[in-house]
């Protein structure tokens, strides 16, 4: 059985201007010990997908249809009380901007212990002991659990956030842009740490980012999202070397590669569409250089290229001359 299986998830937001289809028919699978990179531009629905899993959506948001199966149990149908037991015990999250996610007037160790006491039957003293062990696990000095957040650097705070995410031995950890606000060297340290922990603890990891280039060495699988939909998914080699969707290709070629010739990468013209009135047909067609008539009217279905490699494009692989 898969650790996580999302089937046809739709999460919409009701706002005064209309219904924002932030996540529109998304399906994913993830196994134990596997890592999945969820990548796309700002506003494509990556974070909403993650928040749907944990049911942490804001008031305006609701899951319209679809299933989220965690070890076969459907999280969408669960009551608030049931989901509270899942949250942090089975599925935890590392949030973007660790600097703001910690309480500035509370010792870091106490914050981690509080999390443990809330979600597991444990005394505060035991929980503090566990916090020390967790600090050691993420390469922080255990005695620093009595520090306040301002005594930590950005990288150390992010390590503390990871320790907190691991506090209840979750099966699935979701990292929402865990390295975006950090320096390059600290980013490399944090990615190494996540890679090591995933293997040691055999947990599933979903890494949400707009930076496709960091996924090449940290993930097994990648799903590319555009305007609320997954447009291509597959293992890392499929996405990097045999991609079929022009958007994946464009996203990849917007990064410079220091091992190649020095050329300015191409920008992706235009901006992502409005999700209240998404364009008809393929949602990428207004920005796609290969767009033909059918792209404007008919929505492309998911096509299987090889085992585990899917894409949604009428012209699969057109950018490779195929």
């Amino acid at each position: 059985m898969e650790l996580l299986q999302i089937n046809n998830l739709k999460t919409y937001f009701e706002i005064s201007a209309g219904t924002v289809k932030a996540v529109d028919d998304v399906s994913l699978t993830l196994n134990y010990g596997e890592s999945l990179g969820l990548v796309g531009e700002s506003g494509c629905g990556k974070t909403t997908t993650a928040l749907s899993i944990n049911n942490l959506l804001p008031d305006e948001g609701r899951i319209v249809s679809g299933e989220i199966l965690l070890e076969g149990k459907n999280l969408v149908e669960m009551s608030d009380r049931e989901i509270k037991k899942i949250r942090w015990n089975d599925v935890s999250m590392i949030f973007q901007g660790a600097m703001n996610a910690l309480n500035p007037v509370m010792k870091i160790g106490d914050q981690i212990a509080e999390t443990i006491v809330l979600h597991q039957k444990s005394s505060f003293r035991e929980a503090l002991k566990k916090a020390e062990e967790l600090f050691a696990l993420v390469d922080l000095e255990p005695k620093r659990i009595s520090n306040y957040p301002h005594e930590f650097s950005g990288g150390m705070k992010q390590r503390a956030m990871i320790a907190m995410a691991l506090a209840c031995n979750p099966k699935l950890v979701i990292g929402d842009e865990p390295t975006t606000a950090l320096d390059v060297m600290v980013q490399a340290q944090i990615l190494n740490l996540l890679y090591r922990l995933r293997q040691e603890l055999n947990m599933g990891l979903i890494l949400i980012t707009h930076d496709l280039s960091i996924l090449g060495e940290t993930c097994d699988k990648i799903a590319v999202m555009y305007a609320g939909k997954i447009v291509e998914s597959g293992d890392v080699e499929d996405i990097f070397n045999r991609n079929k969707h022009p958007y994946t290709h464009k996203l990849l070629s917007s990064f410079p590669n220091i091992h190649r010739e020095r050329i300015m990468p191409e920008a992706i013209e235009g901006i992502p569409p409005d999700l209240i009135n998404p364009p008809p047909g393929c949602r990428f067609h207004p920005r796609c250089p290969y767009c033909i008539e059918i792209c404007r009217s008919e929505e492309p279905a998911m096509t299987m290229e090889s085992k585990g490699h899917y894409y949604a494009c009428h012209l699969g692989g057109v950018h490779n001359g195929k």
Partner: peptide, 24 residues
């Protein structure tokens, strides 16, 4: 050299020889 070795590149690269510096 260390900075260069950790630059993310848009390629699949397992076991790349990265020199991640310790500490800050």
């Amino acid at each position: 050299r260390a900075l260069l070795s950790i630059m993310p590149i848009p390629e699949v690269h397992r076991n790349r020889n990265r020199q991640v510096l310790k500490g800050e």
